[in-house]
Amino acid sequence: MKIELAKNYGFCFGVKRAIKIAENSAGSQESTSATIGELIHNSLEINRLKDNFRVKTLKNISELTDEKRAIIRTHGITKGDLEKLKTTGIEIVDATCPFVTKPQNIVEKMSNEGYEIVIFGDINHPEVRGVMSYSSKPVHVVLSIDELKNTKLPQKVAVISQTTKKIEEFISIVTYLMQRVKEVRVFNTICNATLENQEAVRELASKADVMVIVGGKNSSNTKQLYLISKNLCKDSYLIESQNELNSEWFKNKKICGVSAGASTPEWVIQNVIKELENIDKICNS
């Protein structure tokens, strides 16, 4: 069985930056840092940061106790929480991805100019919750055109996307709005790395007869890769680590494609590949 990696996969710029920031925030043995929410959506990497760099993960700012510094997650936090954090006197280390800061700034600017905001995204995702908080006007968060049909639309909207969404679906949302709203300002806020990873998995899944997507089960961009892969290769599997691999998946398979979400560390991906090679040896021995 040939094991082939997607042309683009794994850690994006924003995640690499956040990991480096978290590692550099480690102080003495008595000094600890804490991220407000999960730094990235990958439990294995979060555990590594905790074990090796004493970086704790808190659910929200109310859980802060004696930590020396607070790290803002890659997805950002709400504007209100940031203001509260500034009043505590704790050292603030901002690891918000620049691709997330961009829609925050757009929403703040456009809402101040009188535009209501339409966000293509998941209202429960921390990135979206953070971006929403920067608007001074009503915000409409939708995942589909059907949801837009039940939304009372104003005459002026600014539309953005969650950074990890599929470009095709964003275009369909924009097209729908253009046909029904007098003035539409469109900002493509989908991350370049997301687009490149999606295109690479689409290309690989088209020729593979089994696909393995590696990443956190709660990672939006990883789930998007899996859905794209599943649509093109029915034998597609989403795993967090090599321990979830099942040898039955690879019987009589000739090409195994591998991709990974933007928050999946290289060491996890390499462990998966090693286990795939072991499985292949066993199956063909």
Rank of each mutant, 00 (worst) to 15 (best):
R54W: 01
V186N: 01
A26L: 03
S136P: 00
I119Y: 00
E30V: 08
G215I: 12
E277R: 15
I255C: 07
K254S: 14
S25N: 10
E147P: 07
R202H: 14
L153M: 15
T87Q: 15
F11A: 03
K68E: 15
M132D: 04
Q179L: 12
V128P: 12
S172L: 09
E113T: 09
T222E: 05
I77T: 03
N112M: 07
N60T: 08
S43G: 04
N112D: 05
N24Y: 03
R17M: 12
A95M: 08
L148E: 02
P154S: 14
Q162L: 10
R17N: 13
N284W: 00
T57P: 01
T101A: 13
L64F: 11
V181M: 14
L143V: 02
D81F: 10
Y9V: 02
V212K: 08
D146E: 15
K16C: 11
E45K: 14
V174S: 01
V174E: 00
V15Q: 05
H125Y: 01
I228D: 12
P265W: 10
E169C: 03
K152N: 13
V272Q: 04
N47P: 00
E266K: 12
V131G: 04
K149Y: 05
L5P: 06
L227P: 09
E248I: 03
R17A: 07
A158G: 02
S62C: 04
V210E: 10
K2Y: 01
I72L: 05
A18Q: 07
T32M: 14
D94N: 11
V157K: 02
V100H: 01
V181T: 06
E113F: 14
V142L: 04
S263A: 08
A193W: 05
A70L: 05
Q29R: 15
Q224I: 10
W249C: 14
L227A: 14
L276V: 08
E196Y: 10
E113I: 07
V100G: 01
K68P: 00
E30P: 00
S285E: 14
G257V: 03
C233Y: 04
G10M: 06
G257H: 06
M132P: 12
Q162H: 09
S263Y: 10
S28H: 04
N278R: 15
I145N: 02
N218P: 01
V141K: 09
M1A: 13
G27Q: 11
K281T: 11
G121C: 05
L58W: 00
F53K: 15
A70S: 05
A22E: 02
Q29W: 05
C256D: 03
I61Y: 04
W267T: 09
V128L: 06
Y176S: 06
H41E: 09
G257N: 13
K2D: 15
I160P: 00
N8K: 15
M132F: 06
L153C: 12
L195K: 11
E203V: 15
Q162W: 04
I77M: 09
